[in-house]
Design a binder for these strands. Structure first.
Lengths: 187, 187
DNA sequence: CTGTGCATGTAACATGTTACATGATTCA
DNA sequence: TGAATCATGTAACATGTTACATGCACAG
């Protein structure tokens, strides 16, 4: 009993990245390269790391037999390892999914800049917030395009995309409020 | 030429935390303890670190003469150092505020869980998303309360709080979409 | 007189980035 | 033939967390 108990006790505090990778592999077998792209594009608003963190994590997951790999020649490019989830991995992923998450961590420097906007001439502040707005507008359009090709048959990807849409719309609405308030302020 | 050029070249890539602290001190002179609280409460959706990162950063800022400290007896509690921003610090902060920010980094495990919700029995998934919604509802109420005591005379804090309100409302709206879609799905 | 909040600090550890390194394939 | 993309990997570094450590002051 002792051994397996210990394993289950430590299971919950495992690195989030490993679970993210498990989720990515579960949703579709992928290579390390593809997983990196997936995180940076589709999962942009979920979790994203550089490839240098991905490959070691994959090797650990494989060592623990939560995933298995298959060498395949690249369609265009060199050979790569395609990972797929094992029964043990699926079990672990399910247990993780069943747990609640802490509130998402946010690191948004732009908010701090807005907090200090009275340091800037009005025109500079206005230009900045408009540029930020444009950036989020572009991101919104990306999510809207993804949304349009998804159906309720893929509820997971659809809901993740919906989150992107709603989040970007909220950010844009906030930018508009910021712009309005700056415009009203005496210079 | 060489020396000051180098200093200005490296200036832009300084640690974000230092700028966050400068912003916090600029908005109001504070102690390390108060800055930590400020980040975790008011700045919850901006930038937040533990106190163990704050004190060393403050000492570096003081060493660079961007802030200065004053020892004061605590109103109730031990003596503390109250930091205020210097002219050099204000200059640096202004330069930072004038720059644009990269898009905010988000680490939201919950999205990945929803991506894999088909692994869970419907009731478990429903319970989870409702609990997440309640958490964000509570956070929304916190921001709404802050908003109600702020006026346009403090545009900075007001806009930061507005961001909190809009962000939480968007998250709650998303939770509702998730709940709806799960409820519709065959079990 | 004990717990809670105020207040500061250090050290070991975890996690992730940047930069360095390599090499294949495809397209212009 | 040179740039772009695919594909994987390592090592040094940056940043932040957890845990450990200390001590005052006030309330119950």
């Amino acid at each position: 009993m002792g051994v397996s108990d210990q394993k289950e006790a430590t299971a919950s505090k495992e690195k989030p990245l490993k679970h993210v990778l498990l989720a990515g592999i579960y949703s579709q077998p992928r290579s390390g390269y593809e997983l990196t792209k997936w995180m940076q594009v589709a999962g942009q608003h979920c979790w994203s790391v550089e490839h240098s963190s991905v490959y070691p994590a994959l090797r650990e997951l494989e060592k623990d037999e939560l995933i298995k790999s298959e060498r395949l020649p690249g369609t265009r490019g060199p050979e790569r390892s395609i990972y797929s989830i094992t029964a043990a991995g699926l079990e672990k992923l399910t247990a993780w999914v069943a747990n609640g998450s802490p509130r998402p961590a946010i690191k948004d420097e732009q908010l701090l800049r807005v907090l200090c906007f009275d340091l800037l001439p009005r025109e500079v502040a206005l230009a900045q917030i408009r540029s930020v707005r444009a950036d989020h507008q572009a991101q919104l359009e990306f999510f809207l395009e993804r949304q349009s090709v998804l159906t309720e048959h893929q509820p997971g990807p659809l809901l993740v995309t919906r989150r992107g849409v709603l989040a970007e719309q909220a950010y844009i609405a906030w930018c508009d409020e910021v712009e309005e308030m700056i415009a009203r302020r005496p210079d």
